[in-house]
């Protein structure tokens, strides 16, 4: 049985005093988690001993130009389950976050997508390779400062791509 939104917010406040918690809409909890608490917070949300929110609805990221932000939507497959929107700030240069695939196996491909489009590295991810873009693609296209090649010519196996992406695919 999953807790109601209000009691869930109280639990999160007690357990993670650094987190910013709000319940702007009924049935929803908005949380901003510190990167240091991210792994423990994910365990707390997902595990049966914690909240039992076993369904990761979405995992994506936003570029705020001064920082990157991971966004997670977490709920459970019950009508009464609250929806948790968790946001984690990451530094924009060399962004790294712990992988949550061990808590929600469904995070595997979304994390690869965020790696591909935003360049966030996930520590502990079982298979961190590109998923949408070719291996030799240069840059991270959903970052605000991404500049496309003016010609937009097909790369066709040419070009070096970013070092980080190549290392991941090696």
């Amino acid at each position: 049985m999953t807790p109601a939104a209000a009691s869930l917010a109280d639990q999160i406040k007690q357990k993670f005093p650094r987190a910013w918690v709000d319940t702007p809409v009924e049935g929803e909890v908005h949380v901003r988690v510190d990167l240091k608490d991210y792994r423990e917070f994910s365990w707390f949300l997902s595990s049966k001993d914690g909240c039992g929110l076993t369904y990761l609805s979405a995992l994506t990221a936003v570029d705020f130009q001064d920082k990157l932000q991971l966004v997670l939507l977490v709920t459970a497959c019950q009508d009464s389950a609250p929806m948790v929107e968790a946001r984690v700030d990451l530094p924009r240069d060399d962004p790294k976050a712990p992988s949550v695939t061990s808590f929600w196996p469904g995070a595997n491909w979304p994390e690869r997508e965020v790696f591909d489009l935003f360049g966030v590295e996930f520590d502990g991810h079982p298979d961190l390779r590109t998923i949408l873009l070719p291996e030799n693609f240069k840059g991270y296209p959903l970052r605000k400062d991404f500049e496309d090649l003016p010609s937009n010519e097909p790369a066709l196996g040419k070009g070096e791509g970013s070092k980080r992406r190549q290392d991941a695919n090696r």
Binding site: L132, L133, F137, P141, F146, D148, N152, E153, P154
Partner: peptide
């Protein structure tokens, strides 16, 4: 002109 799209297969 999207970052990942070929602008026509005739390329």
């Amino acid at each position: 002109g999207a970052y990942n799209v070929i602008n026509g297969v005739d390329r």
